[in-house]
């Protein structure tokens, strides 16, 4: 759908939509530089809350724990989600396909309390029956996060796979590559951007999860959202504002670098195409 003119109503919807989405975040960030403990009354500029944030050992160890789990969950989710996407898009009809597709997409909408509770009960049952997992902690959180993140990865990768021109693979096979060779030299390099996008999505989802982690974690494995939640429950604290500011800056910087890079590549590409035709 393209149209040269985007009407006045559309502009209003767009502008007010972005105001609604961003103003609360900007206010939050603004008050992280407040001298006062009260986040609603401005008492002068200060960065002391950032200092306090970094001195908060519980918070820092939770950050580390969350990053570690997010990294491992995202990596595992990319492996499993990609396999699932390949099975969904490439294998045509097979027995149990409907159930397979259902299992992949259901975690996208499943309320977190249900997923969390059910996984906890599974781990308890398993440890009773098999003695594993002996205790809940980062491993059980990793399993839980991998499970719901792989659904997102599968959706992202399968949409890329569906656009994939199959004749590229046939051409590679025709030129002498084996099935495995085709996968690693043709398919994987071409879908790599989707795998990266899936990994990043899974990473942020894992980093953000409170409810599921609360169910399946054990003593000694407190993730960042759990620390933030218990602190927020007690009331507003500028330290959380400081944390939020850092998080928002990190995410938007990463996003804008990625966006800028892709835009630049696109511009270079267009220039090259033009010069190819001008010759």
């Amino acid at each position: 759908m393209t149209n040269a003119g985007i009407g006045r109503w559309s502009w209003m919807a767009l502008v007010s939509g972005f105001i609604f989405l961003y103003v609360p975040i900007f206010i939050l960030m603004f008050y992280s530089f407040n001298e006062s403990r009260l986040v609603t009354v401005w008492a002068g500029f200060s960065i002391k809350w950032y200092g306090e944030l970094f001195r908060d050992e519980q918070m820092m160890s939770a950050v580390w724990m969350s990053l570690k789990i997010a990294f491992l969950s995202a990596s595992m989710a990319v492996v499993l989600g990609t396999m699932a996407a390949i099975a969904m898009v490439r294998f045509g009809r097979f027995r149990g396909k409907t159930m397979f597709t259902g299992m992949i997409t259901a975690p996208l909408v499943m309320p977190e309390v249900i997923t969390g509770l059910s996984l906890l009960l599974l781990f308890v049952t398993l440890s009773q029956a098999l003695g594993w997992p002996a205790e809940r902690g980062s491993v059980t959180i990793w399993i839980a996060h991998t499970t719901f993140c792989m659904a997102y990865v599968a959706v992202v990768v399968s949409s890329r796979l569906r656009e994939f021109d199959r004749s590229l693979e046939e051409a590679a096979m025709d030129l002498g590559a084996s099935r495995l060779g085709v996968f690693f030299r043709i398919t994987l390099p071409i879908v790599a951007p989707a795998l990266l996008a899936g990994w990043l999505l899974a990473f942020t989802l894992s980093l953000d999860d409170l409810v599921i982690a609360s169910f399946v974690s054990g003593p000694g494995s407190t993730t960042l959202p759990m620390v933030v939640f218990s602190s927020v429950r007690l009331g507003v604290s500028p330290k959380i504002n400081a944390l939020a500011t850092l998080l928002v800056l990190a995410v938007s910087m990463a996003t804008f670098i990625a966006w800028w890079y892709m835009r630049r590549q696109e511009l270079i590409r267009q220039k090259e195409i033009q010069s190819a035709f001008n010759k």
Binding site: I25, V228, V232
Partner: peptide, 10 residues
């Protein structure tokens, strides 16, 4: 992509 919890906190 930032944080659900923090956006509610805002």
């Amino acid at each position: 992509w930032t944080s659900f919890l923090i956006r509610i906190y805002a």
